[in-house]
Design a protein around this nucleic acid. Structure first.
Ligand SMILES: NC(=O)c1ccc[n+]([C@@H]2O[C@H](COP(=O)([O-])OP(=O)(O)OC[C@H]3O[C@@H](n4cnc5c(N)ncnc54)[C@H](O)[C@@H]3O)[C@@H](O)[C@H]2O)c1
Ligand SMILES: NC(=O)c1ccc[n+]([C@@H]2O[C@H](COP(=O)([O-])OP(=O)(O)OC[C@H]3O[C@@H](n4cnc5c(N)ncnc54)[C@H](O)[C@@H]3O)[C@@H](O)[C@H]2O)c1
Lengths: 254, 254
DNA sequence: CTCAGTTTGTTCCCACGTTCACAAACTCCT
DNA sequence: AGGAGTTTGTGAACGTGGGAACAAACTGAG
């Protein structure tokens, strides 16, 4: 296999270059910004699919996904040429191609660690399973919680982690413990072979090379909103000046 | 002080321009990427402060925040010159300056709409109030939930939204309803005068100019992890096949 | 077949963000 | 005071991402 060549859109002239992808190695790598948008496109396509729409233009899909159509086309071009000029994209076909590229045609086993307020909400969340993720275990270190039924599972001892990860070949872990426990839990997950971590705790995790961490931080999101909110008020308040400049500005405007 | 120009990075020559901030108006604007990191620095500083550390270098603070020290210094330089060369930064002073810049020295009233699984977790979350955000109302459209006690509040009718927003001068709203209700809730929030929205529902919200929306989307985060996870396996699996080859591969594997 | 109309895939250019590297500014020791 | 050592603030190089614009590739009518 891998014989086809077929000259992809990428580097056209630099065919059988022998040097080992010096410095710049795009090598089928999709830009991170594009990867982050593919799930959005996928969701939009599923919506169109549910409405039994067979075909759509980049303009329509872009509108549904809330992005610029040029950006959408460029994003999709990284995956290949799945559209037809003059026509548009076949919804089902494109949907499958994006799902395959992201990797959600297969099922990903996931463990959740820390079943408190947030962990309970996550465990009850149906959007998990409907998008290719299967919760194989809910783990907590608190013995008082062990055995508690939740969704279609029971809360289990965090000490069982290694057994579970091995048994189900778990690659993705979710951390929903307090911040002070997060690094420790993270280390244990990594030690068991988990290589992707979604962290809800407000703490900076350090992991070895090859392990991906993404964080979801509510406080940060709110603080970003607060920053912009403050600037909106300041706009008519006092044109956003630093304190020392205020005096000077007053003089100028006079 | 200051006043002496000192040639800021921004537009130096375009001093007292009369045109209304045409097109490019950096005008003391802090880069978005920097704004997103300031809360992380703030958290790191609070940790240092709790440990009664009075001073820190950019190197130390950067390590605590999980970023490059050059990036940290550049980020801080947008706020002003709050460090001392040869010494470092005063923890308390810098902490206050960042908090002020973000706007968390004041208290921001927040409403949460949709008190289901996620809404309950958010309502119980202590990290809200400890970071300058005060939940002034928990709203749900389901009459069965009205009056239910939660944290130090009760769940109230979504219809009360306008009264509450006016009374508390709420600028920030959190949406935790199902996706199909999100746009409607968003419109109602905006109509009442809310200008910043944090959206947990997996849907694209459209808002008028001047309203900020940030989304937190668990599924997207997991799908991004899945993408990278898939590439990790593919690396030694089959060197990344092109589409036409997939069909062949599938046949082979059968 | 040809031509007009449509829509994709790609190129080009600009803006933004990251990192390096170094002068400027400070402390401390002699 | 002066010089060695330290650390900030920033200019410049580099890389990534976004958007306009257009050639290429398709459809369908005449
Ligand atoms: N609740 C929210 O809405 C919310 C929002 C944003 C972020 N967060 C963050 O998510 C995390 C969890 O929040 P929460 O409200 O669910 O807290 P919580 O205290 O309700 O739950 C934490 C759970 O983790 C368990 N735990 C503690 N140490 C553990 C360990 N070493 N191993 C395994 N389990 C352990 C505890 O037994 C508890 O059940 C916190 O870091 C919080 O800051 C929560
Ligand atoms: N539960 C999770 O862990 C989780 C994780 C990520 C994203 N989400 C998303 O967050 C949202 C909420 O999830 P959930 O699990 O809490 O769902 P849920 O069904 O448990 O709760 C939704 C709540 O919203 C209320 N509601 C419905 N329509 C409303 C309206 N028009 N106005 C006001 N309230 C209304 C319902 O009465 C219900 O109480 C969903 O969009 C979900 O996809 C949830």
């Amino acid at each position: 296999m891998t014989s086809g060549r077929s000259s992809r859109g990428g580097a056209p002239t630099t065919e059988g270059v022998s040097r080992t992808a010096s410095a710049k190695a795009p090598e089928r790598g999709i830009p991170e910004a594009t990867v982050a948008r593919l799930p959005v496109y996928l969701r939009a396509l599923i919506t169109l699919s549910d409405r039994e729409i067979a075909t759509c233009s980049s303009e329509e899909l872009a509108a549904a996904a809330g992005v610029n159509s040029a950006k959408l086309r460029k994003d999709l071009s990284y995956l290949g040429s799945y559209g037809t000029r003059g026509v548009g994209y076949d919804v089902e076909y494109l949907r499958y191609q994006i799902a395959r590229e992201i990797g959600v045609t297969q099922d990903w086993p996931v463990v959740i660690v820390g079943i408190g307020n947030l962990g309970h909400a996550l465990a009850n969340y149906s959007g998990f399973s409907s998008r290719g993720f299967r919760i194989v275990a809910l783990l907590d270190s608190d013995p008082a919680r062990h055995g508690e039924p939740l969704g279609d599972r029971f809360i289990r001892d965090f000490a069982d982690l290694e057994t579970i990860v091995r048994e189900h070949d778990v690659a993705i872990g979710v951390i929903a413990t307090p911040a002070h426990a997060a690094q420790d839990v993270c280390d244990r997950l990594v030690a068991c072979g988990v290589t992707s971590i979604l962290n809800f705790a407000p703490s900076v995790l350090s992991v070895p090379e090859g392990v991906d961490v993404r964080k979801v931080d509510l406080s940060i999101e709110l603080q970003i909103l607060a920053y912009h909110e403050q600037r909106k008020s300041a706009a008519y308040d006092a044109d956003a000046l630093t304190e020392p400049e205020i005096a000077a500005a007053v003089v100028e405007s006079a």
